[in-house]
Amino acid sequence: MADEIKSITFDEAVTEKLQPLLDHGNRLLLSYDDGVGPYSHHGLMALQVSFQFVVVGADANVDDYQAALTSALGPVLYKGYSGEFLGQDLHASFNKLMHTIRLTDAGEQIDDNVEVVVDESAAK
Rank of each mutant, 00 (worst) to 15 (best):
A2Y: 13
A2S: 14
I5S: 07
I8A: 06
T9Q: 13
D11Q: 14
D11R: 13
E12W: 14
A13D: 03
A13F: 02
V14A: 03
V14Y: 00
T15R: 08
E16N: 05
E16P: 00
E16C: 01
L18W: 09
L18N: 06
Q19D: 12
Q19S: 13
P20S: 11
L22E: 04
H24C: 10
R27Q: 08
L29G: 01
D33V: 06
D34S: 08
D34K: 05
G35F: 01
G37H: 06
P38Q: 15
Y39C: 09
H41Y: 08
H42L: 06
H42S: 12
H42D: 15
H42A: 06
L44V: 13
A46V: 13
A46K: 15
L47C: 01
Q48E: 15
V49S: 08
S50E: 05
V55I: 15
V56N: 06
G57I: 00
A60H: 05
V62K: 08
D63L: 02
D64V: 01
D64T: 03
Q66W: 09
A67C: 13
A68P: 07
G74A: 05
P75K: 04
V76H: 08
G80S: 13
G80R: 12
Q88I: 06
S93A: 13
S93E: 13
S93T: 11
N95L: 05
N95Y: 10
L97A: 07
L97G: 00
H99C: 05
T100G: 09
T100E: 06
T104D: 08
T104W: 01
T104A: 11
D105A: 10
D105V: 09
E108T: 10
D111Q: 04
D112S: 09
D112A: 11
D112V: 11
V114W: 03
V114I: 07
V118R: 06
D119N: 11
E120D: 15
S121F: 12
S121K: 13
